[in-house]
């Protein structure tokens, strides 16, 4: 099981021949991800690590099943590329690009909603179901299979928590990076719902940060709909108002964006609060998962 991706997911890499795309394609393939095609306009007909490259997505999906796309297309061209993927009927798109103009993202997400596609990102490290499939850029040695589902805005924080858990012998079902914002396709709330339904996931770790109000929506969802235990770690407790803390979405504008208000809301909703990554294995032990 796991969520979003598993050992049967058939993957297309968009922007596969660029330096990052090519390097990451090889690593994903070595990890065991079933990569069935690559797309780069103008590079059709070539082969990369044994994968056939096409000029267009519509050519790549002809005569073969494609379940998911990971896009390494740069921000300036990301809208066109994303619409091409969604238009071809593929149901899951991972948008790694950082810095896509907000109005472009709105159009992509709206089109995805119309076509029933799921967009992860933008500015996401992707998603990994350890031991099964990796659709992203994670340092995968930090992860191993197990019962903990992780949803994180930050890529690096999910690596940090994955590493601490793995070191303590606690594996993960799926690790989802939703991206640095300020606009998100798949939300924390949507991922929590998937984990709640996933029989392999027993505990969920929610990794949030300052800025926006997603964590408040997540808190509402936890209190109303979730039976599985949730551990939350919200970073940026020391962030000053108005400063951009790395991510485009990590900026405190108003009370709801502060770490303190998010922590309070999550605690009230019944989530266990971790102060740092090191607390998380302890809390999981307490739950007895």
């Amino acid at each position: 099981m796991a969520i979003l991706i598993d050992e049967n997911t058939r993957v297309l890499v968009q922007g596969a021949t660029g330096s990052v795309g090519s390097f990451q394609t090889q690593i994903m393939q070595e990890y065991g991800t079933k990569i069935v095609a690559g797309v780069t306009p103008g590079k059709g007909g070539r082969k990369l690590h044994g994968i056939l490259i096409y000029d267009l997505v519509e050519e790549a999906v002809q005569g073969q099943q494609v379940d998911a796309v990971i896009s390494f297309v740069p921000a300036r061209f990301a809208k066109d590329a994303a619409i091409e993927v969604i238009g071809s009927g593929i149901r899951l798109l991972v948008l790694t690009a950082e810095g896509i103009p907000e109005q472009d993202v709105l159009i992509v997400l709206r089109y995805a909603a119309i076509k029933g596609a799921t967009v992860l990102g933008p500015d996401t490290p992707g998603v990994i179901s350890p031991g099964k499939c990796k659709l992203g850029v994670h340092p995968h040695t930090m992860f191993m299979g197990g019962p903990v589902g992780i949803v994180s805005k930050s890529g690096s924080l999910s690596y940090e928590v994955g590493r601490v858990l793995t070191k303590n012998g606690v594996g993960q079902s799926t690790v989802v990076g939703i991206g640095g914002g300020p606009i998100w396709g798949l939300s924390q709330e949507a991922v929590l719902e998937m984990f709640e339904k996933d029989p392999e996931t027993e505990v969920i770790v929610l990794l949030g940060e300052v800025g926006g109000r997603q964590e408040h929506d997540a808190a509402r969802f936890i209190s109303q709909y979730m039976n599985k235990p949730v551990i939350a770690l919200i970073v940026g407790r020391t962030a000053p108002e108005g400063a951009q803390m790395g991510h485009a979405g990590a900026i405190i504008e108003g009370e709801e964006g502060t770490a303190a208000s998010k922590i309070a809301a999550l605690e009230k909703a019944g989530a266990m609060i971790a102060k740092s990554s090191l607390d998380i294995p302890e809390l999981i032990k307490k739950i007895g998962a």
Partner: peptide, 24 residues
């Protein structure tokens, strides 16, 4: 830091340990 999230958690941990961060 090489990531926003690890950067923020590093600052929080410095703060919790009684230190004062000069910057993010």
């Amino acid at each position: 830091a090489d990531g926003a999230g690890t950067g923020m958690i590093t600052l929080d941990m410095i703060h919790d340990a009684g230190g004062k961060p000069a910057n993010f």
